[in-house]
């Protein structure tokens, strides 16, 4: 029995002219103890899916189960066993760190003491501020407290909806380290994020765009699906370089990636020579051309274009 199964889920919302389809028949399953990433931009349907799985919304059609319990008929069972950290950190801003944790422990019929082992490592980091109001915590600390609150009843499945949005890079890194420690305890996690670079931190990911799954695979598997050679190009005037490359008829795509541009050609022959020719005719200096491995973002863009 898989901890999370999603079977052809469709969700629509009424809109001014007709309906907006947030989820267009989504299916996947998550294995026990897996960190499963749902990667996609805002508006892709991630939050709708989370709410359906946490029994907060009803899907139009399709079915889903958590630990074998149906999200519609067995919602009471599911509410007892899942932990949920919604997109906005859902803490009581005017309650202290300790009061928040105590409150969430009690409404889940447990005590801080009973499951302290599980949250200990995370809680110790915020314990020095336990009398501080949650509203006065920094983004990173709020995030840790929210995770503690979602964990305090020892859920078997943990839903984390964009837990790292708006949090600085250090806190994000620490947050993922915490998730790995929870994974060791056998907790299954569904994590969503709009940030492609976090995909490589998951065991498996589903790329989601406009309510559809583009691909479900391990991060390695996804980059493995990228068959064409990928070139990284760099020169003194990057903006002009991009326009020149895009003008070339043999180029399929050219996207800026920080200090370099990533270029894919329609055919595989002579692509390096073609780039060198562009650089030469454009009179560029400091030119660097390398064949590189694609990352998730390259794959996501290629799949979006497909």
């Amino acid at each position: 029995m898989k901890p999370i199964t999603v079977e052809n889920i469709v969700k629509t919302y009424p809109a001014k002219n007709g309906v907006v389809t947030a989820l267009k028949g989504i299916s996947f399953a998550v294995d026990k103890g897996e960190i499963f990433g749902l990667i996609g931009p805002d508006g892709a349907g991630k939050t709708s899916l989370f709410r359906i799985l946490t029994t907060l919304l009803l899907a139009d059609s399709g079915s889903a189960s958590i630990d074998g319990f149906d999200v519609i008929s067995d919602y009471k069972q599911i509410r007892k066993r899942v932990g949920y950290m919604p997109g906005k950190f859902s803490l009581y801003q005017d309650l202290s760190v300790q009061e928040n944790l105590e409150f969430f422990a009690t409404i889940f019929n447990t005590t801080i003491k009973e499951n302290y082992d599980l949250v200990k490592e995370i809680y110790q980091q915020i314990e020095p501020f336990k009398t501080r109001k949650a509203g006065q915590l920094s983004g990173g600390m709020k995030q840790k407290l929210a995770l503690c609150c979602a964990l305090i009843h020892k859920p078997s499945v943990l839903f984390l909806d964009e837990p790292t949005t708006g949090v600085d890079a250090v806190s994000r890194k620490e947050f993922w380290e915490m998730l790995y420690r929870l994974k060791v305890q056998g907790i299954t996690m569904l994590v969503s994020t709009p940030y492609m670079d976090e995909a490589s931190l998951c065991d498996r990911v589903a790329l989601i765009q406009k309510g559809e799954l583009l691909s479900v695979n391990t991060p390695k598997g996804i980059t493995g699906e990228f068959k064409k050679p990928l070139w990284s190009v760099k020169a003194n005037d990057m903006f002009r370089l991009m326009n020149d490359i895009k003008k070339d008829a043999s180029v399929e795509s050219c996207y800026p990636f920080g200090q370099v541009h990533h270029v894919v050609f329609k055919t595989q022959e002579n692509s390096k020579e073609e780039l060198e020719r562009i650089a030469y005719t454009g009179n560029y200096s400091e030119v660097e051309i390398n064949l590189i491995e694609p990352n998730i973002e390259d794959c996501f863009m290629a799949l979006m274009q497909a």
Binding site: T55, L56, R79, G87, F89, F104, I107, F108, N109, C149
Partner: peptide
């Protein structure tokens, strides 16, 4: 509005 209702609803309460 604060989003806390979401978490509370997903509890056995």
């Amino acid at each position: 509005e604060m989003g806390t209702m979401e978490v509370i609803l997903v509890s056995p309460l």
